[in-house]
């Protein structure tokens, strides 16, 4: 068991505590649960881990209709029924109709992979509980064929949550948990540099000042996030907006604020 395997990548800056959490999760072979505001780079973390360890990434994007079973495999009965009606293919071999889902693929893979279960809280309340057994044992069986699959190498499981729903305790107990706080100014400057290496220091300073001022407005409905800041800087660069303009107005405000009421709040607070 070794720690300090994941160190971040060129394009992803991980704070020491986040690196620590990733490495603990890898070493203890527990799923890593990442929570934080939208736009704090939760999903990108999985890509960074896969990239830095040279492993394949399998993503499972959870929707409100997602079922745990779908992640393992789907028995395509409709296809089989159709084949039976129209006489296509060999319908006696059920395995042909078993389609592995993302979790299933991560478990049957001969190599170690990174499995991203993205936005786990979007699904039904019971969804995380349904995953417990498979995540604990790292094995599953296909009832229809009686086949049993066990992971050769336990995948590195990274789970993200936007906190829309409270997750069950039993599920939380098994995870390593890390909350990604919204980056403070210095970290944010570094993050922006990764995306816009050529932005001038003075401009960046001014942009960040405006950005955090906006975020601190108390009555804002939706606070702008990292990705919106990166877009804003891109818009400012394209539009050729200089520091002077930033001092008096907020150009391209629509890139940062997506609600009419928020724009009004920001504009009236300027006065």
């Amino acid at each position: 068991m070794t720690f300090n395997r994941f160190q971040g990548t060129d394009t992803y800056l991980a704070t020491p505590e986040l690196r620590n959490a990733v490495n603990v999760a890898i070493a203890l072979e527990k799923p890593l649960l990442i929570r934080g505001e939208p736009g704090t780079g939760k999903t990108v973390l999985a890509e960074a881990v896969a990239e830095s360890l040279g492993l394949e990434l399998i993503s499972w994007n959870i929707k409100s209709t997602s079922k745990a079973q779908d992640g393992l495999y789907v028995y395509d009965t409709v296809q089989r029924l159709n084949d039976a009606r129209f006489g296509d293919g060999d319908i006696s071999d059920i395995r042909r109709y078993i389609k592995h889902g993302p979790l299933g693929r991560a478990l049957v893979s001969s190599k170690r992979v990174v499995l991203l279960i993205d936005e786990v809280d979007k699904a039904d309340m019971e969804f995380p509980n349904d995953l417990l057994h498979e995540l604990d044992r790292m094995s599953f069986s296909v009832t229809e064929t009686g086949e049993q699959f066990t992971a050769h190498q336990r995948p590195i499981v990274i789970i993200t949550s936007n906190n829309e729903k409270e997750l069950p305790d039993a599920f939380l107990r098994r995870c390593v948990f890390q909350y990604i706080a919204f980056p403070e100014k210095n970290t944010m400057a570094n993050i922006v540099r990764v995306h816009h290496p050529n932005v001038e220091d003075e401009l960046l300073k001014e942009v960040l000042l405006r950005f955090y001022w906006l975020r601190d407005l108390p009555s804002l409905r939706k606070r702008p996030s990292t990705s919106e800041l990166v877009d804003w800087i891109a818009a400012l660069a394209r539009g050729g907006v200089g520091i002077e303009a930033l001092a008096d107005e907020l150009p391209f405000l629509g890139v940062l604020l997506k609600r009419e009421t928020d724009v009004e709040i920001a504009l009236s607070a300027r006065r």
Binding site: M1, F3, L172, F177
Partner: peptide, 28 residues
């Protein structure tokens, strides 16, 4: 205990603070 016993304890209290937090505290 497993994490500490397997070598993660070499670091200072800072590391312990983060290690214990990510394993024991599951809600921000």
């Amino acid at each position: 205990v497993r994490a500490l016993a397997s070598g993660h304890s070499r670091a200072d209290l800072n590391t312990f603070y983060h290690l214990a937090r990510c394993l024991l505290v599951k809600r921000e």
